[in-house]
Design a protein around this nucleic acid. Structure first.
Lengths: 239, 239
DNA sequence: CGATTCATTGATGTCGGTCAAGCTTAGTGG
DNA sequence: CCACTAAGCTTGACCGACATCAATGAATCG
């Protein structure tokens, strides 16, 4: 598969200019970043990093979706993060990465070699500050997800995932505010790995939600949520 | 209950001077921090913050153990973080806190009012840099925990928790490197809330591990692990 | 048009939850 | 000092939600 890489002439044209790790940078700082950045593309299914790999670059998701997963020696898999456009990939000050990183769709990354980027964290305050904000947000999201994994039923887990994706997708391209339409960027297996379930349970709960009219889909990937609040009520987090 | 608050004359005497958010600060930066810091103590069982409270201060655990928990409307509880000495409490740039924070043991905090502290993050680079490191470490830990919650059996969960506590406690006061002795800072109920289990299951698995000699305890709180590697083997993360 | 991957659905099994009873320990007051 | 209480823990009996095993269907691709 070949990937059309949009030619981004400069950071000013970049779709994630005002959300990514560079969003607080002024003109000068951006020039510095621009000097060390390069783009890389991955097609759906490709592994970007294997757990244990030396972490040669960090960067931002420009478009596409990537997942972070951990695998146990006996093969059990748990997804521990889902990276959408503008999310940051990698861990400054660490020599290796401890999760697999997989492109769930075609992905384009804006990469920085790790060492020079670490230098920039020390020297250009706005990079470090933004990265701190983003990391704190991700920590909040991870803790939210711990509640999902530890205490929710299969049905609530599915509803939570669908609601989260619908909400995050909607933030990228807003709809009418009541319902939502989106293309699931992940397979049933990936959903199962995210939710700590089996694919059979995911399938059954999707069918149940469909039968009850909370979601609709024909081809398993294009999901319609007629009423986001009704779906939210199934997540177990409403009063 | 009254709490003996050790009089810490200055940061130089502080037990967490070289681990906490202040650890990279030089003399001048430390003076600035010292000007806005104050100590607060909480006795075991006290709630430090309720979810939704305005976040007036942030700070470091000087001694003791605190937990972060989320509660669902119907009462289900999931612990999402365990703070040991030197860990950071609070979220800069957020007006409210979204988890309950409870002192599991007597706790002493080194507090900074949030607003001035946020100013310091912008102006004294070593505070922000250290906080970024610590937040990235916490994110790694949260992701590790997602694997525990999503994919491990009850037995593996218990072994993982005991191994984690034993290891972290040992780092604070090292033993012989093979076994470990420690006082569980949390009740069975808190363990259950951390692991996404019920207290009955925790109790059963503790009894099972005890019967098999992997752990030993008389009074439910003082745990002996004769062989940390043997316990590790029960976590499911060994080859 | 097979071959392959992904998803759905059904039948059965099991791990951990629920319900319930009893035990241990610590604290309180007579 | 001992009775009384309450909180925390343990253990057993039973049950149900989700996993496992298995068969079939739908979509994609060479």
């Amino acid at each position: 598969m070949t990937l059309a890489i949009p030619r981004l002439k400069s950071c000013e044209d970049c779709p994630i200019r005002y959300n990514a790790v560079c969003s607080k940078c002024d003109r000068d700082e951006l020039d510095e970043l621009e000097a060390i950045k390069y783009y890389r593309s991955f097609s759906a299914g490709q592994t970007i990093f294997f757990a244990g790999d030396p972490l040669e670059f960090v960067g931002s998701i420009v478009f596409g979706v990537a997942s972070l997963t951990r695998t146990m020696p006996d093969g059990r898999v748990q997804m521990v993060g889902l990276l959408l456009p503008s999310d940051f990939l990698g861990r400054p000050h660490r020599e290796t990465i401890e999760t697999d990183v997989v492109a769930e769709t075609d992905v384009m990354l804006c990469c920085f070699r790790r060492k020079p980027f670490e230098g920039m964290i020390e020297q250009t305050p706005h990079v470090g500050q933004r990265l701190l904000e983003m990391t704190l947000d991700e920590l909040d999201a991870a803790r939210e997800w711990m509640l999902v994994l530890g205490r929710k039923t299969a049905r609530e887990k599915i509803a939570s995932l669908l609601h989260m994706i619908a909400t995050r997708m909607a933030a990228l391209e807003p709809g009418d505010g009541v319902g939502a339409n989106f293309t699931l960027p992940i397979t049933r297996e990936t959903m199962a790995n995210y939710l700590g379930l089996t694919i059979e349970t995911v399938s059954r709960q999707m069918s149940a939600l469909k039968k009850e009219g909370l979601i609709a889909f024909e081809d398993r990937r294009d999901i319609t949520v007629p009423d986001l609040d009704a779906l939210k009520a199934e997540t177990g987090e409403e009063d």
